[in-house]
Simulated assay, not measured.
Amino acid sequence: MLNITVAVSEFLLDCAIIPGQRSLTVAALILVYVVSIIGNVLVIIVVKINQQLHSPMYIFIGTLAIIDLANSTIIIPKMLAIIQFDYTVISYEACLAQMFGIINLEQIVALLLALMAVDRYIAVVYPLRYPSIVTRNLVVVVISVLPVFSIVLHISYLVYTTELSFCHTNVLPYCLCDYATLVHASCNEDPKYLSLLSIMVMVLGILVLFSYVIIFHVALKIKSGNRNNKVISTCVSHLLVVLLFYIPPLASYVLPQSGLQVTSEKYNLISILSNVIPPMLNPMIYSFKNKDIQGSVYRLFTRKRLAGEPGDH
Protein backbone atom coordinates (compact mmCIF):
# COMPACT_ATOMS: atom_id res chain seq x y z
CA MET A 1 0.00 0.00 0.00
CA LEU A 2 1.39 3.37 -1.02
CA ASN A 3 1.80 6.15 1.50
CA ILE A 4 -0.15 9.24 0.57
CA THR A 5 1.43 12.47 1.78
CA VAL A 6 -1.09 14.99 3.10
CA ALA A 7 -0.50 18.70 3.47
CA VAL A 8 -0.21 19.52 7.16
CA SER A 9 -1.13 23.04 8.27
CA GLU A 10 -1.41 22.23 11.96
CA PHE A 11 -0.68 19.53 14.51
CA LEU A 12 -2.64 18.14 17.44
CA LEU A 13 -0.55 17.62 20.57
CA ASP A 14 -1.79 14.48 22.32
CA CYS A 15 -0.26 14.88 25.77
CA ALA A 16 -1.13 11.39 26.96
CA ILE A 17 -1.22 11.17 30.76
CA ILE A 18 -1.92 8.05 32.81
CA PRO A 19 -5.69 8.03 33.44
CA GLY A 20 -6.68 9.61 36.76
CA GLN A 21 -3.37 11.44 37.17
CA ARG A 22 -4.07 14.65 35.25
CA SER A 23 -4.64 16.76 38.38
CA LEU A 24 -1.57 15.27 40.04
CA THR A 25 0.51 15.98 36.93
CA VAL A 26 -0.67 19.60 36.79
CA ALA A 27 0.08 20.12 40.49
CA ALA A 28 3.52 18.52 40.11
CA LEU A 29 4.37 20.68 37.08
CA ILE A 30 3.33 23.86 38.92
CA LEU A 31 5.47 22.88 41.92
CA VAL A 32 8.45 22.06 39.68
CA TYR A 33 8.04 25.37 37.83
CA VAL A 34 7.89 27.45 41.01
CA VAL A 35 10.93 25.69 42.49
CA SER A 36 12.81 26.08 39.20
CA ILE A 37 12.05 29.80 39.00
CA ILE A 38 13.02 30.50 42.62
CA GLY A 39 16.18 28.40 42.53
CA ASN A 40 17.54 29.67 39.21
CA VAL A 41 16.66 33.33 39.84
CA LEU A 42 18.40 33.11 43.21
CA VAL A 43 21.54 31.67 41.60
CA ILE A 44 21.56 34.38 38.92
CA ILE A 45 21.19 37.15 41.51
CA VAL A 46 23.95 35.98 43.86
CA VAL A 47 26.39 35.30 41.01
CA LYS A 48 25.62 38.73 39.53
CA ILE A 49 25.96 40.83 42.70
CA ASN A 50 28.90 39.06 44.36
CA GLN A 51 32.18 40.09 42.71
CA GLN A 52 33.93 37.06 44.20
CA LEU A 53 31.62 34.80 42.17
CA HIS A 54 32.73 36.24 38.83
CA SER A 55 35.27 33.46 38.30
CA PRO A 56 34.96 31.00 35.36
CA MET A 57 33.24 28.24 37.33
CA TYR A 58 30.53 30.55 38.66
CA ILE A 59 30.04 32.16 35.25
CA PHE A 60 29.27 28.66 33.95
CA ILE A 61 26.86 28.05 36.83
CA GLY A 62 25.13 31.41 36.33
CA THR A 63 24.78 30.76 32.59
CA LEU A 64 23.30 27.32 33.25
CA ALA A 65 20.77 28.96 35.58
CA ILE A 66 19.76 31.46 32.87
CA ILE A 67 19.26 28.68 30.32
CA ASP A 68 17.34 26.53 32.81
CA LEU A 69 15.10 29.51 33.60
CA ALA A 70 14.40 30.05 29.89
CA ASN A 71 13.85 26.33 29.32
CA SER A 72 11.32 26.01 32.15
CA THR A 73 9.45 29.15 31.05
CA ILE A 74 9.18 27.99 27.43
CA ILE A 75 8.15 24.41 28.22
CA ILE A 76 6.14 24.12 31.44
CA PRO A 77 3.42 26.79 30.86
CA LYS A 78 2.71 25.27 27.44
CA MET A 79 2.45 21.80 28.97
CA LEU A 80 0.05 23.10 31.63
CA ALA A 81 -2.15 24.77 29.01
CA ILE A 82 -2.36 21.53 27.04
CA ILE A 83 -3.01 19.24 30.00
CA GLN A 84 -5.39 21.49 31.93
CA PHE A 85 -7.22 23.41 29.18
CA ASP A 86 -6.76 21.11 26.15
CA TYR A 87 -4.99 23.76 24.06
CA THR A 88 -3.78 21.03 21.76
CA VAL A 89 -3.84 22.67 18.32
CA ILE A 90 -0.63 24.28 17.07
CA SER A 91 0.11 25.59 13.59
CA TYR A 92 2.79 23.98 11.45
CA GLU A 93 4.98 27.11 11.57
CA ALA A 94 4.59 27.54 15.34
CA CYS A 95 5.40 23.86 15.83
CA LEU A 96 8.64 24.18 13.86
CA ALA A 97 9.58 27.34 15.74
CA GLN A 98 8.93 25.63 19.08
CA MET A 99 10.89 22.55 18.03
CA PHE A 100 13.84 24.66 16.86
CA GLY A 101 13.85 26.70 20.08
CA ILE A 102 13.73 23.64 22.35
CA ILE A 103 16.40 21.68 20.48
CA ASN A 104 18.72 24.71 20.56
CA LEU A 105 18.28 25.21 24.30
CA GLU A 106 18.94 21.52 24.87
CA GLN A 107 22.07 21.69 22.71
CA ILE A 108 23.38 24.75 24.54
CA VAL A 109 22.92 22.94 27.85
CA ALA A 110 24.71 19.86 26.47
CA LEU A 111 27.63 21.99 25.27
CA LEU A 112 27.71 23.89 28.54
CA LEU A 113 27.84 20.67 30.56
CA ALA A 114 30.72 19.51 28.36
CA LEU A 115 32.56 22.80 28.94
CA MET A 116 31.99 22.52 32.70
CA ALA A 117 33.41 18.99 32.62
CA VAL A 118 36.50 20.21 30.75
CA ASP A 119 36.80 23.11 33.18
CA ARG A 120 36.83 20.75 36.17
CA TYR A 121 39.26 18.45 34.33
CA ILE A 122 41.77 21.28 33.86
CA ALA A 123 41.25 22.51 37.43
CA VAL A 124 42.03 19.07 38.89
CA VAL A 125 44.67 17.76 36.46
CA TYR A 126 46.50 21.07 35.92
CA PRO A 127 45.71 23.14 39.04
CA LEU A 128 48.75 25.43 38.75
CA ARG A 129 48.11 26.25 35.10
CA TYR A 130 44.32 26.54 35.47
CA PRO A 131 44.20 30.36 36.05
CA SER A 132 46.20 31.01 32.90
CA ILE A 133 44.32 28.48 30.74
CA VAL A 134 40.73 29.15 31.82
CA THR A 135 40.39 32.92 32.05
CA ARG A 136 37.21 34.87 32.65
CA ASN A 137 37.46 36.57 29.25
CA LEU A 138 37.85 33.21 27.51
CA VAL A 139 34.80 31.81 29.28
CA VAL A 140 32.68 34.86 28.41
CA VAL A 141 33.67 34.62 24.74
CA VAL A 142 32.98 30.88 24.57
CA ILE A 143 29.58 31.25 26.25
CA SER A 144 28.68 34.11 23.88
CA VAL A 145 29.48 31.91 20.89
CA LEU A 146 27.41 28.92 22.12
CA PRO A 147 23.98 30.16 20.88
CA VAL A 148 25.36 31.02 17.43
CA PHE A 149 27.14 27.66 17.19
CA SER A 150 24.00 25.81 18.27
CA ILE A 151 21.78 27.59 15.74
CA VAL A 152 24.19 26.90 12.87
CA LEU A 153 24.49 23.28 14.01
CA HIS A 154 20.73 22.79 14.02
CA ILE A 155 19.89 24.37 10.68
CA SER A 156 20.19 20.84 9.27
CA TYR A 157 17.46 19.60 11.64
CA LEU A 158 15.20 22.43 10.53
CA VAL A 159 15.77 21.35 6.93
CA TYR A 160 15.16 17.71 7.89
CA THR A 161 11.87 18.68 9.53
CA THR A 162 10.62 20.40 6.36
CA GLU A 163 11.40 17.18 4.47
CA LEU A 164 9.18 15.05 6.73
CA SER A 165 5.95 13.70 5.24
CA PHE A 166 2.89 13.08 7.39
CA CYS A 167 0.86 10.51 5.51
CA HIS A 168 -0.82 8.80 8.46
CA THR A 169 -1.65 11.43 11.05
CA ASN A 170 -1.02 14.98 12.19
CA VAL A 171 -1.35 13.95 15.84
CA LEU A 172 1.89 14.17 17.83
CA PRO A 173 1.87 11.86 20.88
CA TYR A 174 3.65 14.38 23.09
CA CYS A 175 3.00 17.62 24.99
CA LEU A 176 5.32 19.70 22.80
CA CYS A 177 6.67 19.89 19.27
CA ASP A 178 9.80 17.84 19.84
CA TYR A 179 12.10 16.92 16.96
CA ALA A 180 12.20 13.20 17.78
CA THR A 181 8.41 13.12 18.12
CA LEU A 182 7.97 14.74 14.70
CA VAL A 183 10.28 12.15 13.15
CA HIS A 184 8.46 9.26 14.83
CA ALA A 185 5.05 10.59 13.72
CA SER A 186 6.14 11.02 10.10
CA CYS A 187 6.16 8.29 7.48
CA ASN A 188 9.84 8.84 6.63
CA GLU A 189 12.01 5.84 7.45
CA ASP A 190 15.42 7.25 6.54
CA PRO A 191 17.69 6.70 9.60
CA LYS A 192 19.50 10.00 8.93
CA TYR A 193 16.75 11.93 10.68
CA LEU A 194 17.62 10.54 14.12
CA SER A 195 21.06 8.98 13.70
CA LEU A 196 22.93 12.31 13.56
CA LEU A 197 21.15 13.56 16.67
CA SER A 198 21.83 10.30 18.54
CA ILE A 199 25.52 10.44 17.56
CA MET A 200 25.84 14.03 18.77
CA VAL A 201 24.21 13.22 22.11
CA MET A 202 26.46 10.18 22.59
CA VAL A 203 29.67 11.99 21.58
CA LEU A 204 29.06 14.85 24.02
CA GLY A 205 27.99 12.40 26.72
CA ILE A 206 31.15 10.31 26.24
CA LEU A 207 33.31 13.48 26.37
CA VAL A 208 31.71 14.49 29.66
CA LEU A 209 31.96 11.01 31.19
CA PHE A 210 35.58 10.61 30.02
CA SER A 211 36.50 13.92 31.67
CA TYR A 212 35.00 12.87 34.99
CA VAL A 213 36.60 9.40 34.86
CA ILE A 214 40.01 11.07 34.60
CA ILE A 215 39.07 13.53 37.35
CA PHE A 216 38.11 10.63 39.63
CA HIS A 217 41.36 8.87 38.79
CA VAL A 218 43.41 11.96 39.66
CA ALA A 219 41.35 12.69 42.78
CA LEU A 220 42.09 9.25 44.19
CA LYS A 221 45.83 10.03 43.92
CA ILE A 222 45.57 13.33 45.79
CA LYS A 223 47.24 12.94 49.19
CA SER A 224 45.28 15.72 50.87
CA GLY A 225 42.18 14.05 52.27
CA ASN A 226 40.07 17.23 52.33
CA ARG A 227 40.86 18.17 48.73
CA ASN A 228 40.32 14.55 47.64
CA ASN A 229 36.86 14.46 49.24
CA LYS A 230 35.92 17.87 47.83
CA VAL A 231 36.88 16.88 44.28
CA ILE A 232 35.01 13.57 44.46
CA SER A 233 31.92 15.21 45.99
CA THR A 234 31.90 17.84 43.23
CA CYS A 235 32.30 15.20 40.51
CA VAL A 236 29.47 13.06 41.89
CA SER A 237 27.16 16.09 41.94
CA HIS A 238 28.08 17.07 38.39
CA LEU A 239 27.69 13.51 37.11
CA LEU A 240 24.20 13.34 38.61
CA VAL A 241 23.22 16.42 36.59
CA VAL A 242 24.72 14.91 33.44
CA LEU A 243 22.87 11.61 33.88
CA LEU A 244 19.56 13.39 34.53
CA PHE A 245 20.06 15.38 31.35
CA TYR A 246 21.28 12.63 29.01
CA ILE A 247 19.53 9.37 29.93
CA PRO A 248 15.83 10.30 29.28
CA PRO A 249 16.30 11.94 25.84
CA LEU A 250 18.80 9.31 24.74
CA ALA A 251 16.25 6.65 25.68
CA SER A 252 13.56 8.44 23.65
CA TYR A 253 15.87 8.56 20.59
CA VAL A 254 17.35 5.08 20.84
CA LEU A 255 14.51 2.86 22.11
CA PRO A 256 12.17 3.34 19.13
CA GLN A 257 15.07 2.71 16.71
CA SER A 258 15.97 -0.51 18.54
CA GLY A 259 12.51 -1.94 17.92
CA LEU A 260 11.27 -1.65 21.51
CA GLN A 261 7.72 -0.40 21.73
CA VAL A 262 7.10 2.41 24.22
CA THR A 263 3.54 3.43 25.13
CA SER A 264 2.53 7.08 24.66
CA GLU A 265 2.15 7.49 28.42
CA LYS A 266 5.66 6.17 29.12
CA TYR A 267 7.18 8.17 26.26
CA ASN A 268 5.53 11.33 27.60
CA LEU A 269 6.74 10.58 31.11
CA ILE A 270 10.33 10.11 29.89
CA SER A 271 10.22 13.30 27.84
CA ILE A 272 8.56 15.41 30.54
CA LEU A 273 11.09 14.27 33.14
CA SER A 274 14.02 15.08 30.85
CA ASN A 275 12.69 18.58 30.17
CA VAL A 276 11.40 19.79 33.54
CA ILE A 277 13.38 17.99 36.26
CA PRO A 278 16.98 19.05 35.43
CA PRO A 279 16.20 22.82 35.50
CA MET A 280 14.70 22.33 38.96
CA LEU A 281 17.54 20.20 40.36
CA ASN A 282 20.53 21.98 38.78
CA PRO A 283 20.53 24.91 41.26
CA MET A 284 20.40 22.47 44.17
CA ILE A 285 23.13 20.19 42.83
CA TYR A 286 25.50 22.73 41.29
CA SER A 287 24.91 25.79 43.44
CA PHE A 288 23.33 25.37 46.83
CA LYS A 289 25.85 22.72 47.90
CA ASN A 290 28.59 25.26 47.20
CA LYS A 291 29.76 27.09 50.33
CA ASP A 292 30.46 30.37 48.49
CA ILE A 293 26.95 30.46 47.03
CA GLN A 294 25.45 29.34 50.35
CA GLY A 295 27.19 32.26 52.05
CA SER A 296 26.02 34.71 49.38
CA VAL A 297 22.41 33.53 49.68
CA TYR A 298 22.60 33.83 53.48
CA ARG A 299 23.96 37.38 53.25
CA LEU A 300 21.33 38.28 50.65
CA PHE A 301 18.46 37.30 52.92
CA THR A 302 19.99 38.64 56.12
CA ARG A 303 20.85 41.94 54.38
CA LYS A 304 24.50 41.65 55.35
CA ARG A 305 27.10 43.13 53.03
CA LEU A 306 28.32 40.70 50.41
CA ALA A 307 32.00 39.92 50.23
CA GLY A 308 33.68 42.02 47.57
CA GLU A 309 31.26 44.94 47.84
CA PRO A 310 32.59 48.45 48.55
CA GLY A 311 33.23 48.86 52.24
CA ASP A 312 34.59 45.37 52.82
CA HIS A 313 38.08 45.11 54.22
Rank of each mutant, 00 (worst) to 15 (best):
F149P: 01
V109D: 02
E10H: 07
A81C: 12
R22N: 10
L260Q: 07
I18Q: 11
P283A: 03
L255R: 02
A65D: 00
I293C: 02
T234R: 10
I59W: 01
V236T: 10
I143L: 09
E309I: 00
V231Q: 04
L31T: 11
K289A: 08
F11Y: 02
V35N: 08
S36E: 03
G39C: 06
Y33N: 05
T88I: 13
V297G: 00
K304R: 09
G308Y: 02
T302F: 05
G295D: 05
L153E: 05
N50T: 08
A307D: 10
P56Q: 11
G205C: 07
N282E: 09
L2S: 11
G308R: 06
E163F: 11
S72W: 03
H168N: 12
T162I: 11
L64A: 12
A97P: 06
V46A: 00
I199L: 15
Q98E: 02
F85W: 10
S72G: 07
L112A: 04
L128D: 08
S165P: 01
L240H: 09
V134S: 00
Q84E: 14
L196T: 13
I75R: 00
S23K: 05
L172I: 09
V203C: 02
K230A: 12
F288G: 07
L281K: 02
V32N: 11
G62V: 06
P256I: 09
V262M: 13
M202R: 11
V276E: 01
A114Q: 06
I49F: 06
A27S: 14
N170S: 06
L111C: 15
S264H: 12
I82V: 13
L146T: 02
E93Y: 07
S132Y: 09
P56M: 13
I44V: 14
F301R: 01
L111G: 12
V159G: 05
V241T: 04
Y286N: 12
E93L: 09
T5K: 10
P191T: 12
H154K: 07
V139K: 02
E106M: 15
S165K: 14
N50S: 08
L273M: 11
A219G: 06
S224P: 03
L220C: 14
V89D: 05
V141D: 12
